[in-house]
Design a protein around this nucleic acid. Sequence first.
DNA 1: TGTATACTGAACTATATGGTTCAGTATCTC
DNA 2: GAGATACTGAACCATATAGTTCAGTATACA
Lengths: 120, 120
Amino acid sequence: MVQYLQSHFDASFGALSDPTRRGVLEQLGRADASISVLAETFHMTLTGMKKHVGVLEQAGLVTTEKVGRVRTCRLGRRGLQEEAAWIERYRQLWSERFDELDNVVDELNRKERVHGRKKR
Amino acid sequence: MVQYLQSHFDASFGALSDPTRRGVLEQLGRADASISVLAETFHMTLTGMKKHVGVLEQAGLVTTEKVGRVRTCRLGRRGLQEEAAWIERYRQLWSERFDELDNVVDELNRKERVHGRKKR
DNA sequence: TGTATACTGAACTATATGGTTCAGTATCTC
DNA sequence: GAGATACTGAACCATATAGTTCAGTATACA
């Protein structure tokens, strides 16, 4: 399960680490699109775009369906909620750490004032 | 500026796409740690861990400071707020798309009932 | 002073990534 | 049926990634 979740995040964050793929997600957020439309939008060969779509599909962020000649791409049912949760949990830890650090700094400043030392 | 932001996300999402690096961030969320402690925790050579820390540092997620022999790693001042915002905006688009789809499905179901057809 | 510790950097390996071209196959459309 | 369109797959290329080993340097400590 942990293993599963890990590779899950590997795939989704990996998918998000490329600007073309983030762009594709934004575009599909506005409207479904074929591989060739996406390829044209991002100035890339069909084959190149197909690979990107494949990566997004692997990550569960996009689904595709081929009807006739055309493969239509749309946003997948998985919508980054777990990734959002991971980041939120991290941000929690992060802000705790910095609150702590700020307290230490505040404490030092307070002591400086008490002992009448100059502030930098 | 857009260019800057893009590579920014490339680096941070790329950093998050590796399970070791996500683990390092979680550990540093609990306490600062040296390279060797991190290397031991994640069963890796010092050199290997140093590379991971370098990636996290490049992404602005970790800062390090060397005192004597020891390089101490801690969470960086940048805390994934922009990444959280990107994901939230995406989730917005995503849920709009699916609300829309759900409306279409509801509409179809409604018509089916009106015309007295069997439900699957 | 000598030894152990902690890191650093270069070099090497294997595999993955992001892209291409080229040669197909399948599907429209006239 | 012929030609155009849309995709697919294999092969190739350059570069990046994730790791290693090995040979240092710098610091701590007895």
